[in-house]
Nucleic acid binder design. Structure first.
Lengths: 234, 234
DNA sequence: TATTCCCATATTGCATCCAATCCTGGGGCG
DNA sequence: CGCCCCAGGATTGGATGCAATATGGGAATA
């Protein structure tokens, strides 16, 4: 999970795992879609054995659901799941930010500011998504807690499987940009409590926006993460 | 992860996965120990294919580390890892508690009280560990956030791979018991902020106790989780 | 005696193969 | 006309076999 570039070249199951995971997270593979072993094996030019190992890893990540004798299906993300993952974002990221702020160097702050500027200059909605991710991860990186950061990253990507497009459309770019700038200022001034407060409100707002968006027009969401009508995913 | 009883019977890889995971978490399989595919296959009376799938799942959980062409070894947990997992406990469990308290019914409170009483009556150190786990999980269960609770459970078990014996020995039973009782009272009275504060202090104390114990006598810890001297685990 | 090279062995990685289970469609029966 | 059943294909689950890589120990050499 940490060193994808090297790992991708390492073993076949790893390569398949990384590729499939990315395709699930970016929505290329929608929730509910069955993953046929033979088909994947053919696509990657390997046999079914490494495919099965990759699928098991995806299952452990909760990105794929196994049904007995019926193979693997891309797991669906319900609205409740997405809201809960944002809840988890609050838990993990607020703590990480609290740990990070006292350790931020000038270099760290400059890096964060650069991401912020790029965000302000970006026009494409996919750039917003990427830069939003970069901004948040850059905030927490100074904490130097590899496990916590890995958890944050996994949960962030998973949360945004469902929420990316909707939230971006619902809230636009300006409000998060303002909030990011405020957050950055609080970090720079070392005001931990204020920064954590802002971050919580920032994520909580996207929870509300997501709930509101889905309630208004839930049709779209099925396309993104498959949104299981009944059971909530994995 | 949720329904182990049914899952254990379901598929062979699942059965192996659950069993191996339990053996790693309870320390039967120490960190650094290589897991030979052939040997595991023989032990469980199956071929290497399902063994490999189970190992891949354990790898995704971070309980096992793969080395290219050298197979899987039980991942080691350094002191820094253990402290970080306690940090993650603070993040996840404080949030879960905050969500749970407003939703606690009289029945929930009665259940928590029962665990607390059992803790007070227990004499064995392994009972303390189990009841400590039960107490904490019972606190968060009313939040009714399945993903959050699953994360908490996984992280809790992983954290205690390293810390269980040491912390129990270092802090004894009385102090955590008192803290649990205080925490319970705050929950019953609906004092969210106080309860969360206490929980954070409770876990932070075990961080300090763990660090102190290891610094005093680090010899023992190698036996529990294998404690990699150099690189920190997965 | 220390060191390096090399080969035998152990082990993994992956492909292939067979058995078991699931799904689909068509014919038989009520 | 509708329902049930079952046969054939599709798909998964697991075992086996073979090639590739790592490991360990002994012989040859400096």
């Amino acid at each position: 999970m940490e060193q994808e570039v090297e790992d991708a070249a390492r073993s076949t199951p790893r390569r398949l795992y990384v590729d499939l995971r990315d395709r699930i997270l970016d929505g290329s593979l929608a929730g509910g879609q069955p993953l046929r072993q033979e088909e994947l094996a053919a696509r990657y030019g390997v046999s079914r054995s490494p495919v099965r190992e990759a699928l098991r890893q995806l299952e452990a990540d909760g990105l794929v659901t196994y049904q007995a004798n019926r193979g693997a299906v891309v797991s669906s993300v319900s609205l409740a799941d997405a809201l809960e993952m944002l809840e988890i974002r609050i838990a993990l990221e607020c703590r990480a930010l609290r740990l990070a702020i006292p350790l931020m160097t000038d270099q760290d702050l400059a890096g964060i500011a650069a991401v912020l500027d790029a965000y302000g200059a970006a026009h494409d909605v996919t750039d917003w998504g990427r830069l939003n991710r970069d901004f948040h991860l850059a905030l927490y990186a100074p904490a130097d807690r590899p496990r916590l950061l890995a958890l944050i990253q996994d949960n962030f990507d998973n949360a945004h499987r469902f929420a990316r497009v909707q939230v971006s459309n619902a809230t636009g770019r300006d409000r998060p940009h303002r909030e990011h700038q405020d957050l950055f200022r609080a970090c720079r001034e070392g005001d931990i409590d204020a920064a954590v407060q802002m971050l919580e409100a920032h994520i909580a707002y996207s929870q509300k926006a997501l709930a509101a968006t889905v309630r208004r027009g839930p049709a779209e969401r099925r396309g993104v993460a498959g949104a299981g009508a009944g059971g909530h995913g994995n």
